[in-house]
Amino acid sequence: MTINLIKYGLTTAVQADLTKENGQILGRIIGQHRDWYQVITTAGERSAQVTGKLAYEAASPAAFPAVGDWVCLSSSADNQAQIEAIAPRQSVLARGAVNRQDGQIIATNINTIFICMSLNADFNVRRLERYLTIAWDSGALPVIVLTKADLATKLRAVADVSVGVPTIACSAETGQGLDELQPYLTTGQTVAFVGSSGVGKSTLINRLLGQDILATKSIRTDDDKGRHTTTSRQLIPLPTGACVIDTPGMRELQIFMGDLNQTFAEIAALATQCKFNDCTHTSEPGCAVRAAVEVGTVTSERLQSYQKLQREMSYQGLNSRQLEQAKIQRMFGGKQAMKRVKQRYHRD
């Protein structure tokens, strides 16, 4: 049986970006288990490892394959599949790692990020700001999905921190709001589901699949906190023609790279009115941001969250040019690769 890779998100742009050598085949990574990868090809699923050359040339863990990547495969003498090359990434969702030097890639080549949050005792606006920060930096579109819609009493708190981001309240149990997800789930689209454990990501994906493929567990009744069910990232095609990437719950989300200017747009706009260009919004005279806090147009909690994420981001201290170069290298592999991608999409 031949697998049509279009149902796994294959586009003409992807095919043009990855040059296959003789004997190599194209595939997309749909699962990862330490050093082993599940790769879907036209011939079906294959288990693969990276070649020694690719591992040697990897400058950081982020340079290794991740779920969502398109890759070239070859076979060794013992017919073991090997990953020879990775196509330039159109988007990268990453979070901070324990060592705070390298980022951990959550998923790549995604069009939309569904940030799932349950409106129960686990509801946390500050955590939502973290998700939005890495989502805006990824190159994909963030969409907030509020699960357990029958508890939707906190929409105002979400609206205060999500200007410009679509927000959908839905319930896998009742079907409420599922129609609003469909525009993001059309053929060729890849959507990553992120959020804490127990917010209903796997349940929602099962509802979209029309069958219970992913294991689910209920939220603990004593503290409304979720229990880990998904233990690894996996890419799954939907009947609509889109692909979804289910990710393990992330209660503690460290920032690796992010876009604070999008997440905190009102603070970024006010900062341009500060007396000093390098104002830290702490004790400098003529600070427009602190003035807004004093009159109540910006909450002190919002400013504190902004400052905390600024301090936490692992690339703090880099200038704007270095930040842009780091992002281009991470997403495209260099400026030339980025130019080729832009030229191709302009032609399309």
Rank of each mutant, 00 (worst) to 15 (best):
S283I: 13
L318T: 06
F276V: 10
R302Y: 03
R330V: 07
G210Y: 06
S305L: 06
A265C: 14
C243R: 01
R251I: 08
E301S: 14
D259W: 02
L253D: 01
P248V: 06
R220H: 13
K217T: 15
Q310T: 13
E324G: 10
R227I: 14
A265Y: 06
D212H: 12
N261I: 04
Q307D: 05
L303H: 09
I328K: 02
G258E: 00
Y306M: 06
C287K: 02
C243N: 07
I267D: 00
V289R: 00
G258A: 09
T247C: 12
H228M: 11
L235S: 03
T229G: 05
N319M: 12
I213M: 13
P285A: 05
S300K: 12
T247D: 04
T299M: 10
F256N: 01
M331R: 13
V289L: 11
L318I: 09
Q307G: 07
A292D: 04
Q273C: 12
L309W: 00
G334R: 06
Y315D: 15
L253V: 08
A271V: 01
D224C: 05
I255Q: 00
L309V: 02
M257S: 12
L204Q: 02
I205G: 01
T280K: 15
N277I: 12
S232I: 06
T272F: 07
K327I: 08
T282V: 14
K275S: 10
T297Y: 07
